[in-house]
Design a protein around this nucleic acid. Structure first.
Lengths: 204, 204
DNA sequence: GTCTATACCACGATAGAC
DNA sequence: GTCTATCGTGGTATAGAC
């Protein structure tokens, strides 16, 4: 309804052409994996023939590269929004906001971030090499956040930041394998993962 | 040396035939993914031709199925060893032993468990269906362990067991993407992941 | 138990019409 | 911007010699 009754704005128009292909390809890469998804399959999902894809992308690898990059962009955007909305808040509140933002990137803002997380490890070397710097930059933001919380004395001084980030990322990213946003609340999930990360599971 | 100087026993002999193929295939599936690994590639790693693989396996999918099953078997064995060696110990000690056992399955007992973890999500439906019961059984053991620790009052009563298990599994399994057993100590890693799971990262 | 040879198919990619 | 048609390659799988 919003689309039919509102003037055609770039933010509500259904994606077409290039972006439409990326949307369908990201969803298929997420569901079946990059290597198992053929260009004919992607083209069929978009409603065109395989050869036509080459008007928009120079190769299947280039298509994957673009998806991986957009997956990072979505994460970075979510991170920055969490930064701004929680400046000056206590460490645990900020952490939960960032966890919620990362989960939103995985489950609420299109298939790009989830496709990135599931496809990165086995992506062709040349594709990986091109996006490693952007990935590192995102990870560095998290490391900086945790270091800041540690400096403020709210995060335990003995906790190794690098390992803590990897453990938290692991817990969050692995949820693409089992979390279904239709059946569970992302807010509740973000809250619980933050609670376990922050104070653990022991009775005290 | 152990091999050359000791009588040929089944436990030290290098694998041959069927198991040798499984070893190489599991390593390749782990490294490059199932769909991206061809039978010709596997055969070359073993030192034979692709057609010869069909003497040992009826299809590529059957080969994957066997690898996924062995991946579970390795986890189950490690779990049971941890059970027996820590009966009656405090909750945190038992938890750490089981975390260490799961990590050993991932990094020290061949590529089967790691290949399972990385290949399961995008494995063909028929292959997945056949091993789901065994997977569920392994997960049920962990759920039972955590429930027992909760009944004993050492694990917080308000912690949802199912979610705690998924978060812990996520943190452990995701480490196949970054942990290198040649560079880091698995004992230290198991200890730190258990500490974070158990008491969290907050300064208190 | 492994080989050679090959069938058959789907893949990524290109050329040129429209 | 999408189509049809096709190229060359490499995929899984099979048959039969050794």
């Amino acid at each position: 309804m919003a689309f039919a009754s509102s003037p055609a704005g770039p933010e509500v128009a259904p994606p077409d052409g290039r972006q439409r292909i990326l949307d369908e390809a990201a969803a298929l890469f997420l569901e079946r994996g990059y290597a198992a998804t053929s260009l004919r399959h992607i083209a069929a999902a978009v409603g065109m023939k395989a050869g036509s894809l080459y008007y928009h992308f120079e190769s299947k690898e280039a298509l994957l590269g673009e998806i991986l990059r957009q997956g990072i962009a979505v994460m970075v955007e979510a991170f920055e929004a969490a930064e701004e909305s929680t400046r000056g808040e206590p460490a645990r509140v900020r952490t939960e906001a960032h966890v919620r933002a990362h989960l939103a990137a995985l489950f609420e803002n299109g298939p790009y971030t989830a496709a990135h997380v599931t496809s990165f490890r086995t992506a062709p070397d040349s594709v990986v090499a091109a996006i490693v710097p952007e990935r590192d930059a995102y990870e560095a933001r998290w490391t900086a956040l945790l270091a800041e919380l540690q400096r403020s004395g709210e995060l335990a001084a003995e906790t190794p930041i690098g390992l803590a980030r990897l453990i938290l990322f692991g817990a969050m990213n692995a949820s693409v394998e089992w979390f279904d946003p239709e059946r569970g609340s992302l807010d509740d999930f973000a809250s619980e993962i933050t609670r376990q990360f922050w104070v653990g599971v022991s009775a005290r």
